[in-house]
Design a protein around this nucleic acid. Structure first.
Lengths: 200, 200
DNA sequence: CCACATGTTGGTCGAGCGTCCAAGACACCG
DNA sequence: CGGTGTCTTGGACGCTCGACCAACATGTGG
């Protein structure tokens, strides 16, 4: 095998682990499956990682960071009125779900894994802290640029938004009813538009 | 060990499996952990079940049936106006979540397990079909006894309700923010009340 | 009382798992 | 050139898992 710095190999292994998880699920992402995906000999694994848990920890943070970044890109669009901006954001998010369901599925699987693994609960908490933060940020900026304020406390509204997106995704992963899922998003978007007040 | 019909032993093993899952998670529910919880010798397991998957299948259907039945009990209350009835239902559901988080956690874990296990996807679909059906039933009966109709198609509204509950629960399992979770439920309840029209 | 069905038990098998290690290959620097 | 630190590799370990089975115990019906 070509000689490579341990740091670089770590990155490739993390990427390979994510690919395996997306394709086959978190539980199937064994050390052997991961090095197999990366086409490396087994011994490499524990030369680059203290333990399998260390890699999993890394995967969780990378994956939430990347999905947070992806979400931030979603609401980059300026120049629309509040209503179409909210709608666009919701449906752009939804496109992402339908385009790559595996990634979202892995997100949930990792959350539940972390909640059960002693010492990993904190990671699950941080995961949702980030999600809530992103949604709050979106709501704040949208309100600012539209010159309105939300009539519901921002943390609550962010949690509501997060809940609807998570809930719709979860249900769709099970029954794949795209039409109804989109209708729910439309409904939630319209609801948000009823929660605006005059700017203060 | 006292002699017992295989059918009865099956039931005890299923119950033991559920206890293990609620306490330690689905992945920890190994054949050995389950017979240990039921205080039976290991050999019993494959005398009562073809395979571990057969038991898991049974656990999934039992657990969704029981949570569906529990949900049905929640909205038994008659004699209130629509608003308080909706509120009461949401918060009774929420009490159940805070009282026994493990059960709900297991529900999600089993969904994701089923979605990954070849031949089990159908079970995940059925699980959510049942949930949606219960929510739809609630919305229908509530509307009937209040003499109103919903201005949104019932399947969509049921999915919306399901999404909010699932999403709030999932987020709370990670960060345990009860106050904000309840505020979200209140918000969703108020939203529902804006979706009523005159009876037709 | 025998025969047959049903239930009980402890041990064992092979596979897969995370982890570890010794031995070698390679690169860089004094 | 020799030495030192970094990387590579295949194999091996101890363990847990789902599954299986032969031998035995117990109940039931003729």
């Amino acid at each position: 095998m070509a000689r490579m710095a341990a740091k670089d190999r770590r990155e490739e292994l993390i990427a390979a682990a994510i690919r395996v998880m997306v394709r086959d699920g978190v539980t199937k992402a064994t050390t052997r499956a991961i090095v197999g995906e990366a086409d490396m000999p087994l011994g490499v694994f524990h030369y680059c990682f203290h333990s399998r848990e260390e890699l999993l920890q890394e995967v969780i943070t990378r994956l939430t960071d990347s999905s947070v970044a992806k979400a931030r890109d979603v609401f980059a669009a300026e120049g629309d009125d509040l209503g179409t901006r909210v709608t666009k954001t919701l449906f752009t998010f939804w496109e992402g779900v339908e385009l790559s369901p595996g990634e979202h599925q892995v997100g949930y699987e990792l959350t539940h894994y972390a909640l059960r693994q002693a010492g990993f609960e904190e990671l699950a908490r941080r995961q949702y802290d980030h999600y809530l933060e992103v949604h709050q940020e979106f709501l704040l900026k949208a309100a600012e640029s539209a010159g309105i304020r939300w009539t519901v406390p921002l943390p609550v509204l962010a949690r509501y938004l997060n809940a609807v997106l998570d809930g719709v995704t979860l249900c769709w992963l099970a029954d794949r009813n795209s039409d109804h899922s989109r209708e729910v998003l439309r409904l939630a978007g319209e609801h948000l538009m009823t929660l605006v007040g005059e700017d203060d």
